[in-house]
Design a protein around this nucleic acid. Sequence first.
RNA 1: GCCGAGGUGGCAGAAUGGUUAAUGCGUCGGACUGCAGAUCCGAUUCCUGGGGGUUCGAUUCCCUCCCUCGGCUCCA
Length: 480
Amino acid sequence: MRRFTVYDSLTREVRSFAPIAPPRVGMFVCGLTPYAEAHVGHGRFAVVFDVVARALRHWGYRVFYVQNITNLDDKLIARAAEIEEDPLALADRYAQSWRRLMTRLEVSSVNYYPYATDYVPEILAQVRVLIDRGYAYVAEDGSVYYSVARFPEYGKLSGQRVEALRPGARVEVDERKRAPEDFVIWKAATPGEPSWESPWGPGRPGWHIEDTAMTGRLLGPRYDLHGAGLDLIFPHHDSEIALAEAASGEAPFVNYWMHNGLLTMGGEKMSKSIGNVSSLEDAIDRYGPMVLRFYYLNAHYRSPLEFDPPRTLDEAKEAYARLALPADRIAEALDRRAEDAAGADLPDTLADAAEALEETLDATLANDFNSREVIALLFGWTRRMTEDLPRLDAYSSDALEELAGPYRWAEEVLGLFVRRPEGRGGAWANLVPVLLEARARARARGDFAEADRIRDELRGRGIRLEDDASGTRWEFTGPE
RNA sequence: GCCGAGGUGGCAGAAUGGUUAAUGCGUCGGACUGCAGAUCCGAUUCCUGGGGGUUCGAUUCCCUCCCUCGGCUCCA
């Protein structure tokens, strides 16, 4: 297991990572409340923590990664009422859409996406324990509240002191609470809304306790790594700590807290409530998953990242195309000579450089997941590979594998350079070589009008041609 | 008001107590090309918010001020 460091939001320092029970690592990330289409900001946390899990596995840890889905809350219920759909059905619809987007984005590391409502028994059990231990009380209407005053360390993650909070700053004060800072863990049912039976009457789970009940069951009372956007630190994560440590009597609840910086648009956080959202699916359709992943990983995960369409993704597209060009050419050369072992060996200096680079990539990422620095190193390799492109077909397949090494590393750990057959021209792919041959003949006899006509025709079908010294290449870019 | 994060070239965005502050985008020049595009080579050597302090040396550490963003019970 490689050693690595990670910035821990609780201690506010970069710490060396040590799992509770190596090599196993329990990892939990706060996922979506699926009541609307996912936006580009959501994609960031998904890719950031995907890379964290991929890296840990690459380094020999056995990661169990859980990303929850809050499939019932006030906003979701309100939205469902608006469009006259069952709230749980609405949530399921958007949750499945999220899963499809994750597949397209190559977010493959999540082991389990639990629904909050599938953990009602665990939630009720935790509510019971908290009442029994005197941390929670039942209000007149059957709601149950956590009494923040009973947990003196409340706020240690955010640094907030309870007495400094402004009750009602953004959310109306709830009269049923004993203290304004108390939060609901079991919400008495409202007619017409989904509800479950409980010893305190019908109701539904509060937000914070969903996660602690779920992780208690799946990861145990204490686990290694908790991630999310930094907008969730307060009150959500502070409340999770208060709930979990009170319920289990064990501490610390979580050993490492990771928070990613937020994606901004127009300088402000991208969010549904502000309305400055841009669809994630749209971005994937338009630019492809690799460009999007590149864009996210091109910044340190803790920095804010500005999204300014179309400029930012156009720029990422240009940069990624340049970075990936040798990776593609090497892969193509390998395809061409799959069964052919003949060819030149790699010069020692190049072979050594490839090996050394892989070690540097690991060491760089092991420094608090500095993916931006890793990408800078990969650009260095791409520059070096570019010089070798004309000689590619002279190398043996073993030599080509060595050249591909750093890109393979990035494919496994960063999820970049993934080549999928989809989007490569579909049914037209069979026709293209025939048309290219016809065009080559036209060019050879000087009939450039015919050559351009074929090029334009294909362009109209979303296939772009490029001539270079070795002949004509094509790629499917989609209809304009 | 309180808590937290952050201010780096035209833009995006890294890093480090120490030679010309990475990398990419853009721009300019050149190569290649029937044209286009892509690609390649070179250039863009006056960029670390202001003011103090520690140090032989600060963008980095400390103090202070200014500005931006996030949070203060909906939020990735």
